[in-house]
Design a protein around this nucleic acid. Structure first.
Lengths: 316, 316
DNA sequence: TACACTCGAGTTC
DNA sequence: AGAACTCGAGTGT
C-alpha cells in the first residue's frame, strides 16, 4: 500500500530534528515562568500572614493558612481526593514536628520553601496540560492554513459555547478552545471533533472525523456509520517521552480499531500525529503506514508533512 | 483456558481498593518531604551566597550561582541536554530582566522562590523513579516470602556488583538493588532478571525469566531459546495513571510477543503486575488471561494474588 | 550514548 | 462523580 503523505518518504523522514526539540524546551521554560507566578505571590502572602506568629505551632491557629500548610506537608491536590481531614491534619503536624520546629526561627522560610517545592510539581503538571493544548492549536492552525489555500469555508464551535460560527483563519486566536470544526468537501459535509468520548470505544479520542452537517452535530459520536477517521495527537517534544507516549497512543488506536471492527466497521481509518518522534518508533509508524494499519501520520513539527496530512484529512 | 491465579476470580478481583490508594498517596507525601530536603538547603545556601549583592544584575558576577540561576530561569536539567551555553545565558538574562529586577529589593527571594518551584518539578520526577523502585522491592519481597515458605534457596546479584550471594529473606534490605535472582525448581535452574534490555525486542523489560544457571548468566538475555516469561511491573498507585500505564505496558507486552514470535518462539509467556488497576482495564486484563494472551497477572497491593503469582513464577 | 524506562502533577469529559 | 486524558520531571541501560 502506498503512503498518502508525500512528505513521508522513509521512516527517517518522521523523526524530529534537534532544532525543533531545542525550541520546544525553550518555550516550555518561558511558559513555566508565567505559570509559576501565582505561586510566588502566594508564598509572599503566606510570609506576610505568618509574620506575627512566634513559633511553628502558632500556624495551627491560622485556619486561612491550612491549605498552604497541606501543600507544604507534601500533599498534592491530586492526593487530597483520597485523604480525609484527619489524614491532612496528621500530615501538617508531621511537617511542623519534623521540619518546622527543627529549623527554629526560620520556620516561616522552611514552610514557604516546602510549599514552593510541592507547588513546583503542580506547575509541572499544569504545564503538561498546556503543552497538549498548544499542540492541538498548532494542528488547528495547519488545518486553517490548508483550507485557506483552497478557499474553503470552515465553521467552528468552541468548548465553551453551543453556537457555531464561521472561522476567518487570519484572525488571531481562532485556534483556541476549538471543540469541533465543520466544512464541506467534494464528498459531502464533514465534522472534526476534538477530545471526545466515543461510546463505541468507551474512551476519549483526540481527533474524530465524521460525515455530518452541523444540524446532526449533537450526538454525532454515537453514529458509528458516520465515523470516518480517528487520530491520536501527541504535542509533547521530549524525546525521552516519545516512545512511551507512542506506546500509549498505539494501544489507544488499537482499541479504536478493535471496537469499530467489533461494531461492524472494520474499515475505520486511523492516524497519528506526534511532535517527538524517535527513530525506532518511526520504523513502527512507517511499517503501519505501509501495511495500512495507520492511514496517515505526521510529525507535528514538520510543516510540509503536517499540511499534507491536513490536505488528506480535509478531503477524506 | 483457566486462569492460573486462584485469587483472580473475576475482573473485579484485580481492582485496587480505596484504602491501598490512600496509603500509597500518604507514603508518597512522606517520601517527597525527604527528597525535597537538599533543595531547601540549596535555597538557604543561595540566600547566603547572594546576601552581599545589591542588585539583581550582581548575580551575574557570581559564577558559583549560575546553576542555581539556570534552574530559577525555568530550565530543567533535562532540557539542558538540548540547550547550549548561550541559550542558558539568555534564559538567565530573561529571568533577571523579567522577574528579578521588577521585584526590587526582594530579588533574592524572588530568585530563591523560582528556583524552588522549578526544583519541585525535579523532586516530582525523582519521586516517580523511586516509586518504581519501591514497587520492584515489594515484588521481590513477595518472591522471598514465597520461597521462604517452600524452604527454597535463592541467590542474588546486585545492580552494583558482579558477584552472586545467597539471600536470607529475613535480612532487611536484601530486596534493594537486585539485578537478578537465581534458584532451582523441579524443572531446573531459573534466573529472573530485572530491567534488562532484551536484544530480540530491542527494548528494556521489567521482569525476565530464563532457564539458566549462574554460570550462564552473562549474556543470558541473548538466548531466546532459554527465555520463559517476560513481565511488566507498574508500581504506581495513582488511579488517574492506571489506564495510561496499562496502555503502555500492553504495547510493551505486544512488542515482546511479536518479537519472540518472529524469532520462532511464539509460546513465550507474558504477565502483568500493577498497583493501580481500574475496572475497565481489569476487564481487558481478565480477558487476556482467559484467552491466554497473558499467562498471569496480579495486583501488587493484593497479597494473596501477589504470592500466588510468585508461586507460579518460581515453579515455571 | 542514544534511547527508553520510572510515574503522577495537573485537567477534562 | 468517576474515568481517563495532557506530558516531561527524573533515572538507568
Amino acid at each position: 500500500m502506498s503512503i498518502y503523505n508525500r512528505f513521508i518518504t522513509s521512516a527517517e523522514s518522521l523523526v524530529t530534528t534537534h532544532e525543533e526539540t531545542r525550541a520546544g524546551f525553550l518555550s516550555i521554560a518561558l511558559e513555566k515562568n508565567r505559570v509559576g507566578d501565582p505561586f510566588v505571590k502566594n508564598a509572599l502572602a503566606f510570609k506576610a500572614m505568618a509574620a506575627h506568629t512566634c513559633r511553628a505551632e502558632d500556624l495551627l491557629n491560622l485556619p486561612e493558612v491550612r491549605p498552604f500548610l497541606i501543600t507544604a506537608a507534601g500533599l498534592s491536590d491530586k492526593s487530597l481526593s483520597y485523604l480525609d481531614e484527619d489524614d491532612q491534619t496528621m500530615a501538617i503536624k508531621e511537617l511542623i514536628d519534623k521540619f518546622l520546629k527543627p529549623s527554629g526561627e526560620a520556620y516561616i522560610d522552611e514552610a514557604t520553601f516546602r510549599y514552593l517545592l510541592i507547588k513546583g510539581d503542580a506547575v509541572g503538571g499544569a504545564m503538561r496540560n498546556k503543552i497538549g493544548v498548544l499542540g492541538q492549536e498548532r494542528f488547528i492552525r495547519a488545518i486553517y492554513s490548508s483550507m485557506s489555500v483552497r478557499g474553503m469555508v470552515c465553521d467552528c464551535v468552541s468548548t465553551n459555547s453551543k453556537y457555531w460560527r464561521e472561522i476567518d483563519g487570519n484572525d488571531a486566536g481562532t485556534e483556541t478552545n476549538v471543540k469541533a470544526l465543520h466544512w464541506r468537501n467534494t464528498r459531502g459535509e464533514r465534522i472534526l471533533v476534538f477530545n471526545s468520548k466515543i461510546p463505541t470505544v468507551n474512551k476519549n479520542v483526540d481527533i474524530c472525523l465524521f460525515s455530518s452537517g452541523i444540524a446532526d452535530y449533537d450526538g454525532i459520536v454515537r453514529h458509528d456509520e458516520r465515523a470516518i477517521m480517528f487520530g491520536e495527537l501527541k504535542g509533547g517534544i521530549d524525546p525521552a517521552g516519545a516512545d512511551e507516549h507512542w506506546k500509549t497512543g498505539n494501544s489507544a488506536l488499537n482499541r479504536i480499531r478493535e471496537s469499530f471492527t467489533k461494531a461492524g466497521y472494520p474499515k475505520i481509518k486511523t492516524s497519528f500525529i506526534g511532535a517527538a518522534i524517535q527513530h525506532s518508533m518511526a520504523e513502527e509508524i512507517y511499517k503501519q503506514l505501509e501495511d495500512g494499519t495507520l492511514s496517515n501520520a505526521s510529525n507535528l513539527t514538520n510543516n510540509n508533512q503536517l499540511i499534507e496530512y491536513c490536505n488528506w484529512l480535509i478531503e477524506l
